[in-house]
């Protein structure tokens, strides 16, 4: 497997170079998508299937869709010839920074204190997947603020309001495709959400997949982005953050610790929060793609 890993690692670098230095933007985004999938594969090899799933769905899929959407709208910068000194300086600096990171990662001996703590507390966390336990129990605070960041991004876009020309429908084959794919994504999202308790999966991956299915339906041209539809989506986006905050306050009242779930009921709390988060993340990601409002 060593050969396989080395080939994957080299392929990641090659795809990244293609993505960063391609002349054509569409080719660059395509290479970025390929790189995302290769990176997901290598993270699977590094023993992080939860992160690999999220990278494949969000990092490669949705970010790629966002970049592709904007590729035609953001004008190209005029290619001014940079002075050679700047090229040299940039090359030296980036080499120095990445070399320092490499050196630090190789030299510094890290004492692994977390695995023992996580293993010790895992039985009382309510779930068996350690990553879900960290995300929604031990460090649930971080996740609450992460949802807030996602919502802040949505707010930035709503304030900036770039003109979103109506996303053109993609032809007659797209509707049958969406008809098959959307039910499958709902099924998959439910599966991933439930599976997150004991195996790789969880709210983020499920929400991203749901958003992907909804974008496919949107691109078929059958669902017009009407105003109340967006308002409903925005309401759904707030719902996740609201439910999380309410849960945090309720837990504070019940146990005296913010987001410290009552003993024995942690699984139910986590599942309830995750279900709200899945819908909310899907709505937020969809709004990030289609834009939260149209400017008049």
């Amino acid at each position: 497997m060593m050969l396989f890993d080395s080939v994957i690692a080299a392929a990641c670098l090659g795809a990244a170079a293609m993505a960063l230095f391609a002349r054509d933007r569409i080719a660059a985004v395509a290479a970025f998508l390929v790189m995302g999938l290769l990176v997901a594969l290598s993270w699977l090899r590094l023993g992080a299937p939860d992160v690999a799933l999220a990278e494949a769905a969000i990092g490669a899929g949705l970010t790629g869709a966002l970049l592709l959407r904007s590729a035609r709208r953001v004008p190209k910068a005029s290619a001014k010839a940079l002075p050679p000194a700047q090229w040299l300086g940039a090359a030296l600096l980036s080499l120095a920074v990445s070399g320092a990171i490499l050196w630090t990662a190789l030299i510094v001996e890290t004492a692994a204190i977390y695995p023992a703590l996580v293993n010790e507390a895992l039985p009382e966390s309510g779930v068996e997947n350690p990553v879900t336990a960290v995300l929604l129990n031990f460090r649930a605070w971080d996740t609450l603020l992460e949802i807030a960041v996602l919502f802040a991004a949505l707010a930035v876009i709503a304030v900036v309001k770039p003109v979103h020309p109506r996303i053109a429908p993609l032809g007659p084959m797209m509707l049958p495709f969406a008809r098959v794919v959307l039910p499958l994504t709902i099924f998959l999202a439910g599966h991933l959400l439930w599976q997150g308790g004991h195996a790789p999966g969880g709210a983020f991956q499920a929400g991203a997949i749901l958003a992907g299915g909804a974008i496919a339906l949107g691109l078929s041209g059958m669902v017009r982005p009407i105003r109340w539809g967006r308002a409903a989506l925005a309401g759904l986006a707030i719902l996740g953050l609201g439910a999380f905050v309410v849960a945090a306050l309720a837990a504070e009242l019940l146990t005296g610790a913010l987001l410290g779930y009552p003993a024995g009921a942690a699984k139910a709390w986590i599942l309830a929060i995750e279900s709200a988060l899945t819908l909310s993340i899907a709505a937020t990601l969809l709004l990030l793609f289609i834009g939260p409002a149209e400017r008049h």
């Binding site: 023993g47 999220a54 904007s70 953001v74 977390y114 695995p115 990553v131 876009i157 900036v160 770039p162």
Partner: peptide, 29 residues
Amino acid sequence: TDAVPQAFTLTGIVVLVGVTAALLALAER
């Protein structure tokens, strides 16, 4: 693999997609 850095990375990926969308909106503007 340690679960805590995995959770950090997952959080990072989700925050990054929000940042990307916001930056693209700013670039279009």
